[in-house]
Design a protein around this nucleic acid. Structure first.
Lengths: 351, 351
DNA sequence: CTGTTAGCGCTTTCAT
DNA sequence: ATGAAAGCGCTAACAG
């Protein structure tokens, strides 16, 4: 049989030898069957069967062909979070769609936060990369760039000539912030992490200064937009309370919102950077018996299916479409940046 | 600069040449820095920089090394569905966890339903496969087997000596069915598809006969368990209404349930093969003004987070853990089948 | 239709 | 510490 302990892995050469044909005839049997006689074909197949030959070796093929037919996906510090976050999942679905269309595999790279991450990225058998939202100083980003393979970053920074796909986060934040903070006298923000350390905190705009220290470009841009909105509504940025959540998770946001709402001078409007977090805020308001939007206006971001059910005013964007756009760009010869569409969805959670 | 149009992709040989050292010194610079003098190292790195050399070619390395450090994941007929189904997402998260731990990439293979699927599986640069629930006659399964690489199938059939990971679906269906159908006189089932064609239909147990035609082993086993439960509760299987949904989706299940519940002699108990579908059933009952469990008992499967909120009696299982188990098995030398745990969670949707 | 030659880019011996 | 040879397994390019 095929897999007897002593036998090496079968190769095309051995198959050809056993079949009594040249290696090329054997190769053609697999790659261009039409160029091989029925006879030769049968002999090769029989030999393959006997040796337990499973077909051409993928890595050898890739080497020869010069491409791997796989797209790499880099998901930030914690691989598994990606599957827990609905927005990330939608994004990956978009990538998957394009990959399937083009017959590409989609290789999700293991990111653990350890230094080996960089090596693994360098050694990944992929033709290009899509990088999910990250901070400017993410070593992962540097590693991707160092491969010199086509790479597209989603929601990254505008600097450095990186190719990227993103919406205009500042403008969207300004728009949703205007609605969130309309008629409010104590606006607050629930924010994604400011840096890769992902520390949770409750601060005021004053401490965030010019936002230059905010490592995540998305977060920085959104804060800038909210800031404009708050100032437009009459509250100086320095007075705006900003609660930073370490994770994009309703439970954590609920705790943060509860803390804000039970403090002296509680907010009467909260703009959250995701629907996930906004849903947590709504839960907190409900528990505390606050009327939305009467006592508290709330906005989210993403327009997840759950947002409609909750009557949440939010920023609509299609993560799935953005994922697809990233994938298409990364699979192109010369990827180009692009700006994705968004829209404001006004529902019953705002005044 | 590096990427001038005329220049070929830099190789280690060219770097070595420019650095004035042998190829091996250049190679060691990347792989065993400790065996290279500081001097040589510097020259090599400088040459690499100048040529825009991005490091060793991954496919060439894989070829040499004999392994790809990536695990393949085959997700059934429609790649993108996988990201829409919470159970599938949890399963993938489990795989991702193990891959990250071991420094493996996770390559999701594009499955479109076309014949090329098989070629792509054969050509995937992965060391092993995990196959998500599928039918016995899925060509994809055959393709995976043909690679002779380690493969583990989740929720597959017990035949053919395939390595697989699964819970005891028959026993679990029997258990949840016993609760669902307790005190019911007209039990019904909402089922996953019976075959890869995924045709939706409403039939009775009578037409399903001995279940031998049911292509999906999971579905077959669960039907067998429900059947026992129905008979135990006093209804012959031939009278049990079985609504087959094409997709695992609340909306479709809601329509099916509405059809059943508005027909003459409507069911007074519905066992659904997933929480997703059970949630659709609950919605239908709510719309029709039926009391649960008074007028209608409902059970689901999976114990998704949403099941607890809905008070749904269901079968608890950890898809995440099962994904991890599959991955660990597939990355092992000699994968072995294993049976995963499950438990019955009784809530308020049953009598 | 079949075969020969020449690598794809790298790293494992085994010297020196 | 460095290098020469050999070959991982395959296929494009060109004969015949």
């Amino acid at each position: 049989m095929a897999d007897t302990p002593g036998s090496k892995r079968a190769t095309l050469a051995r198959v050809a030898e056993l079949a009594g044909v040249s290696v090329m005839t054997a190769s053609y049997t697999y790659n261009r069957p039409e160029r091989v006689s029925e006879q030769a074909r049968a002999k090769v197949l029989a030999a393959a069967e006997e040796l337990g030959y499973a077909g051409p070796h993928p890595s050898a093929r890739s080497l020869r062909r010069g491409s791997t037919l796989a797209l790499g996906v880099v998901l930030g510090e914690h691989l598994t979070y990606a599957f827990d976050d609905p927005a990330a999942v939608a994004f990956m679905a978009g990538i998957a769609e394009v990959c399937a269309e083009r017959g590409f595999g989609m290789t999700i790279l293991p990111i653990t936060g350890e230094p080996e991450d960089a090596e693994r990225i360098a050694d990944a058998a992929v033709d290009g990369f899509v990088v999910w939202t990250t901070a400017d100083d993410d070593p992962t980003l540097a590693a991707v760039l160092a491969t010199r393979r086509p790479a597209v970053i989603h929601n990254g920074s505008r600097v450095r000539g990186l190719v990227q796909v993103s919406i205009d986060n500042r403008a969207a934040a300004r728009a949703v912030g205007d609605v969130a903070f309309a008629g409010a006298s104590r606006p607050a923000v629930i924010s994604h992490p400011l840096s890769r350390e992902r520390v949770a905190s409750i601060t005021r705009g004053a401490e965030l200064g010019e936002l230059g220290d905010v490592g995540f470009p998305v977060t920085r841009d959104r804060l800038a937009g909210y800031r404009e909105a708050a100032e437009e509504a009459g509250t100086p940025w320095s007075d705006v309370v900003v609660a930073v959540c370490a994770r994009n998770d309703p439970a954590e946001a609920e705790r943060a919102a509860t803390a804000l709402l039970t403090s002296p001078g509680p907010p009467d409007a909260i703009a959250a950077m995701s629907d996930q977090m906004a849903l947590g805020v709504l839960r907190a308001a409900d528990t505390l018996g606050l009327a939305v939007p009467g006592d508290l206006a709330v906005t989210g971001w993403d327009d997840l299916p759950a947002a409609a059910g909750a009557g949440l005013t939010t920023v609509h964007q299609s993560m799935r479409e953005q994922g697809a756009t990233c994938a298409r760009a990364a699979l192109g010869r010369r990827p180009r940046s692009s700006t994705a569409p968004w829209s404001l969805v006004t529902r019953s959670s705002t005044r």
